[in-house]
Design a protein around this nucleic acid. Structure first.
Lengths: 153, 153
DNA sequence: TCATTTGGTTGCATATTGAAACCAACCAGT
DNA sequence: ACTGGTTGGTTTCAATATGCAACCAAATGA
């Protein structure tokens, strides 16, 4: 698990809510986006995001504290690098789903946007698809939320 | 596209950033979670989330304004229902990826959490997997971000 | 050596949040 | 019809978070 300091969760039994507590913030999500795109240094994030330095500093600290990034100090003690942990790399799916939803729903038909491709062929990354246990496309209506105290069936 | 009122985007060319501007907020994400779980009424959201009424009111208004929910007024003009639009339903993948990341990274091994299952068999929803064009598992390192002005190769 | 960049911190004004009070409709029971 | 409770909000106000600019020390570059 992440975050050594005890969190007070918005909704402790719901994984969506815990994830939202940990990374459900605009700047946090954009820092993770850049981190997965290979950015490492404070100034790289600052330049890419245009975020105020105190906010960037705060979010990086929180992300390290929560186990999403590791701070790797330079041998001279300063100018450290921020690198994604395993949990950070695991956010790839989340960032990809944000990206693809944005592509489909936040751009006009005549607007261009940056695109994620596989370098080998230059093809765009295929659409993420939720699948059921039988491998068929899964719709929200076809799912059921089982709460913690609830019996199996 | 969504939102009739002109937004001023944090990073207009990046779909991740536009998506974060539209739904990258804790309460917004949790309202969408509940909406996809079938909740419709103001009081249902309020009870489920424990959010202050003014905030809930504000976020519902923004979600309607941005085309994620529709407000369906009751015939008596009050007690309307909030229903996901197509763009709202399309957030299923995003909420699922939040959920699955939370399950894997925000719970201790001995902690229980609510689970999303397919009602027919009771099996948990399988893990979302980013795939490359050839159908193989896609890692963040195997992708490249092509910015707008950039040539194809 | 001197200027510049880097990686921050601090202070302050402003914006957002959260809690509570308030309110007008509606609704259920008698 | 009257009464009490629920619903779906709005308003007010204090506390918190944000964003901007100034500042700074260490490292780098010319």
């Amino acid at each position: 698990m992440l975050q050594p300091t005890e969190m007070d969760w918005t909704d402790p039994e719901c994984p969506v809510a815990r994830a939202a507590d940990l990374v459900g913030d605009k700047w946090t999500l954009l820092i993770v986006r850049d981190s997965l795109d290979g950015k490492r240094r404070f100034s790289e994030f600052e330049k890419s995001l245009g975020v105020a330095k105190n906010i960037l500093s705060d979010r990086l600290r929180l992300l390290v504290e929560r186990g999403v990034l590791t701070r790797i100090p330079n041998e001279r003690g300063t100018r450290s690098e921020y690198e994604p942990t395993t949990a950070g790399l695991d956010l790839f799916t989340l960032v990809l789903s944000l990206r693809q939803w944005g592509e489909r729903n936040a751009f006009g038909t005549n607007e261009r946007h940056s695109t994620l491709v596989t370098p080998a062929t230059g093809q765009p990354v295929p659409r993420l698809r939720p699948l059921g246990p039988d491998g068929s496309e899964l719709k929200p209506q076809e799912t059921l939320l089982v709460k913690v105290g609830h019996p199996a069936t």
